[in-house]
Design a protein around this nucleic acid. Structure first.
Lengths: 142, 142
DNA sequence: AGTAACTCCTTTCACGGTGAAAGTATAAAG
DNA sequence: CTTTATACTTTCACCGTGAAAGGAGTTACT
């Protein structure tokens, strides 16, 4: 499996692993009509190509007390503060995802935090860098 | 390990698995000073409690041609269309995450799609249900 | 056509991670 | 001081894994 092309079978394998990364190669092989070893070689190819970056958990922050799930669009109020803002979000563990965006605002953040008073404190910190628009996730549908 | 409390060690294990879900229990055990089997028992507890929902990939949609990463806030224009909107987003494979939100808009969507013309078509479909605000991810920072 | 090179598969095999079971240690309760 | 419960370690058999070797199918060159 040195050929760098990604075919239909690779996509099926990706899809299977996205659903459950602990499927054995043998089990995936049963779906795509290959032996486990052949699946293993393709998974290695996908990893070498950088399609697969790593393996992680699907989990439930709410069950360990992180009941607030918020999306924050940040509008910077100065061109000087970008670097310090980045340092801030990178070091704040309640901020679990950050994107530079075009369109609405400058940055988009995902927040996982215990309760609304903690969120309040976080929002105060964000105000140092700019304004924001906040959305709270009521229910994850997909 | 029938005790339902989640302690500091459990959180360390969670953190380790979030970074790399394919660490062996033994390797995690070396970090938290337990045998692999003890770690296995705690992982099972976390799974039974629903803290761990499953295992999935960290991956790179850009490498299979899904170069556009967009966030969409949708404002419904009618109270009747919620169910059909849900059906729409659940069945559309470019929509990879959906939340009901309070604050800005009614729903928040994550889109992974090949190019802007495909995005255009998707946005046209969304317009049937309401208005939207679009942000494009330029760079994922965290 | 014949052969060489290449790709991608299967088969085989040894290693090691895994969960189950049994044994051990510690702490709390009567 | 014993009983019980919890959470650990040790031991063990199973099986998933990657490596290696071999085979089948395809392409390209003479």
């Amino acid at each position: 499996m040195a050929n760098q092309d990604i075919d239909y079978i690779d996509l099926k394998i990706l899809q299977a692993l996205l659903e459950n990364a602990f499927l054995t190669h043998k089990e995936i092989g049963a779906k795509v009509h290959l032996t486990g070893q052949a699946v293993g070689a393709r998974v290695r190819k996908l990893t070498d190509l950088g399609v697969i970056d790593g393996y992680t958990l699907r989990w439930n922050p709410g069950k360990i007390g992180l009941t607030v799930h918020a999306f924050l669009t940040v509008f910077m109020n100065s061109n000087q503060s970008h670097q310090s803002f980045r340092d801030f979000v990178l070091s704040n563990e309640a901020v679990t995802e950050v994107h530079r965006v075009s369109g609405e605002g400058c940055y988009w953040l995902r927040i996982r935090i215990g309760d609304s008073s903690e969120l309040n404190k976080l929002l105060d910190s964000v105000l140092k860098y700019g304004n924001y628009r906040l959305s709270l996730s009521i229910e994850q549908i997909k």
